[in-house]
């Protein structure tokens, strides 16, 4: 399968990339690691006239630490994210979930920013960054702007990025002393998640003080399980957690496909939420 013809530019700075996009208009696409975009081009599900390859822009790569947040360059590969000591220390949920993305060869090319900008609700990292209350920083012709993760994912494969903007970095508030777990159910080792649940839990004196839950593939966008989060406040012990997890699918709109019906997904969201919260809260 051969993609339709397109032009190709490889800018060396964010400014050059923004200029290339502005010049091309809506028929341009940003090429990051290409692990989602290239299969789409080969299947001719996308027909950009221009690819702007941001894969060689050094300023978009790497992890740095600020006082309250980790700043991860959008072009940092999954392989580098999961191996990064700062990520492992301050955003363990992101490291753990990234280890489950696809397979090693895909993780060598695919990038955090590419995965988020692609905005596939079945991808693991959008729900994880949503649970982490991350922020996405975009640069466009009118400068930089910061978009909270909860405003970023607007619809299936749609984000708040404008066509002339480049996602340059992802800011993750330092997690502090939160337990975490990413639970994912899929039929084959490298398959997309049928359902995934990203959980952060803060405990206080044996009780759950606060929980944050992001759901993968439970609707056209990744979503927070707000009802379960509320029900978990003050939970103590597995029975409380199991009861609260019953609310995990409230307000979701999962689709039915060959991997499972919407009802099955709702059921799995409840099961995986219970498991993930118990694991994140640690041994009782």
């Amino acid at each position: 399968m051969i993609p339709a013809a397109f032009d190709y530019r490889r800018p060396e700075s964010v400014d050059e990339a923004v200029a290339a996009l502005a010049e091309a208009g809506e028929d341009a696409k940003v090429l990051a690691g290409g692990q989602s975009l290239l299969p789409m081009l080969r299947l001719r599900l996308a027909f950009p006239e221009l690819l702007v390859d941001v894969g060689r822009i050094d300023e978009m790569r790497g992890v740095r630490e600020e006082e309250d947040a980790l700043v991860i360059g959008a072009m940092t590969t999954h392989h580098d994210v999961m191996a990064d000591p700062l990520v492992r220390t301050h955003a363990g949920l992101l490291a753990a979930a990234t280890e489950t993305v696809a397979d090693p060869a895909v993780r060598n090319r695919g990038t955090l920013g590419g995965s988020l900008a692609h905005a596939d609700p079945a991808a693991d990292l959008p729900a994880v960054v949503l649970a982490l209350d991350g922020e996405l920083v975009a640069t466009g012709p009118r400068g930089r702007r910061t978009i909270p993760a909860r405003d970023f994912f607007t619809d299936y494969l749609q984000s708040a990025l404008n066509p002339d903007e480049v996602l340059v970095e992802v800011r993750i508030p330092k997690a502090g002393n939160w337990g975490f777990r990413y639970e994912k159910f899929h039929r084959a080792a490298q398959a997309w998640a049928a359902v995934g649940v990203a959980v952060l839990v803060r405990t206080d004196g044996g009780r759950i003080a606060e929980a944050r839950i992001g759901l993968t593939n439970m609707g056209p966008t990744p979503v927070r399980a707000a009802a379960a989060e509320a029900a978990l406040a003050g939970a103590e012990g597995p029975e409380d957690v199991a009861r609260a997890a019953q609310a995990a699918a409230e307000g979701t709109r999962p689709s039915s496909d060959l991997w499972g019906s919407a009802e099955y997904r709702e059921h799995m969201a409840r099961v995986l939420t219970r498991r993930a919260v118990l694991a994140a809260a640690g041994p009782a």
């Binding site: 490889r10 090429l31 299947l43 895909v106």
Partner: peptide, 27 residues
């Protein structure tokens, strides 16, 4: 498979394994 799933076309690019059906020659 030609869809990035099977890994048959895996090669090394700059010292890391990649699926060569999911990389452009220009990259």
């Amino acid at each position: 498979c030609d869809t990035g799933s099977c890994g048959a076309c895996t090669v090394e690019l700059d010292g890391r394994s990649v699926k060569s059906c999911s990389v452009l020659a220009v990259q």
